[in-house]
Design a protein around this nucleic acid. Structure first.
Lengths: 239, 239
DNA sequence: ACCTGAACACCGTTCAAGT
DNA sequence: ACCTGAACACCGTTCAAGT
């Protein structure tokens, strides 16, 4: 694979040229390539495994080379978030189904962040202004407008709903990084036993509800759906 | 202050004893003292300033000494969260006012975490099992039970509502660490101008709503209240 | 302009040695 | 049992030097 067409469709480099890439077809460093590599490292090694050295390694270079394209780790995280946001597909608004469409959008955020563990952390505490995020946000606003909500309510909801999905995904990511699914189930079982064994006179509710409090933890989707239902119900009440 | 009564009310150490504290009255190291110092460092230097060396420094010792009492930074964070949780005051349930009482509890979580920037991060992704958190949770469950909600709904709500407060506080903390209030206002103003200047044909909603989307950011409390209202309205609909 | 090797600064944690 | 100095491992970032 010595000759790959470059992203800009330049003519292929003839073999006698001195300007051939020094490594076998490896693309030159670029912001996009760095973001690609970083997402790959994140998916493979998790949040704790994502560092500038690992990203540089995946690109066959040293960490210092990244700083010619990216100001630092924080900017890199921002670019990764925007890449993922840009991949979101938001349907055209259907006023009849606005609540379901809004829910689908929030679910998509949740799933996107779950797919890249730890990335949710980078989305908390930033106002996304990249092209991908802006495009997704604009179409999300379209869904809320189709719901006939007042402008002030839309502005709040456009902030709160993604925050919910991000926070929930972040919490799940933390668990997933710390333990496997089986270990998680065992952990929840231990919590259940601990709750149930607490002195019932001092903690009457936790002890009596130990089962309900820990039952659904292996299936976090149901709890996510419940919270989403709470939010959208509360939103619809504002019409 | 050479003679302070020890936590266990041991008799004072006579001045001719060789077992007097080597430093002027400084208490011996303990988990509680370490948690105290860590909260002090956190409040003064923020999340980025909180490290084992700084905590040890505040106690007049070296970082290695902490590991005799605390297994590591993660456990220390857990202890700090539990300390703060234990300081929460939850009223006796009043079925007539259950919605307002639930809101007050969520507000208290939010404020507690705002008071200790970065601590919210430690609460995301853990099931709190310390004495302080368990006590607060039990009394919170009491408020939800007084609301006449089904057990399954209570179990979900007891997880979702604190998650909301924690996530919101975390987001605010990230901003607060990154910039002062004035810088934040200026930042939001720039975002407003950026949104308003986007091409209106491709981003019709963001451009037309630029004002509403950025108006309230200097006053995050209103948005927090709005999200809380959404959640509790959705919760009450489950009765 | 882009890339690189080497180094700096910082920090969580360990360990052998002290009392 | 508790504490400590010193060191190790790791990682974000910088910088002077290369092409």
């Amino acid at each position: 694979m010595a000759f790959v067409s470059s992203p800009r469709d330049e003519p292929p480099v003839p073999p006698w040229s001195k300007r051939r890439p020094r490594d076998s077809g490896r693309p030159r460093l670029s912001r996009d390539a760095i973001v690609d590599a970083a997402l790959g490292v994140l998916d493979a090694a998790g949040y704790d495994g994502l560092n500038m050295r690992a990203v540089a390694d995946a690109l066959g270079t040293g960490p210092a080379s990244l700083y010619a394209h990216v100001s630092g780790k924080e900017e890199l995280f921002g670019l990764m978030v925007d890449r993922v946001a840009g991949e979101m597909v938001v349907p055209d608004p259907d006023p009849e189904r606005w609540q379901e469409q809004v829910k689908d959008f929030v679910r998509a955020i949740y799933r996107n962040f779950l797919a890249h563990p730890g990335l949710a952390r980078a989305n908390l505490g930033t106002i996304p202004t990249g092209p991908g995020a802006v495009a997704a946000m604009d179409r999300f606003l379209g869904l809320l407008i189709a719901g006939g909500l007042p402008e002030r309510v839309i502005a709040y909801a456009a902030d709160i709903l993604p925050l919910y999905a991000t926070a929930y995904a972040f919490e799940q990511s933390v668990f997933a990084e710390r333990m496997t699914e089986e270990e998680g189930a065992e952990y929840v079982r231990q919590i259940h036993d601990y709750f149930a064994a607490l002195p019932a006179d001092r903690f009457p509710h936790i002890t009596s509800m130990a089962g309900a409090l820990t039952r659904d933890d292996p299936q976090p989707e149901a709890r996510f759906e419940f919270g989403l239902e709470m939010l959208v119900t509360g939103l619809a009440a504002q019409r």
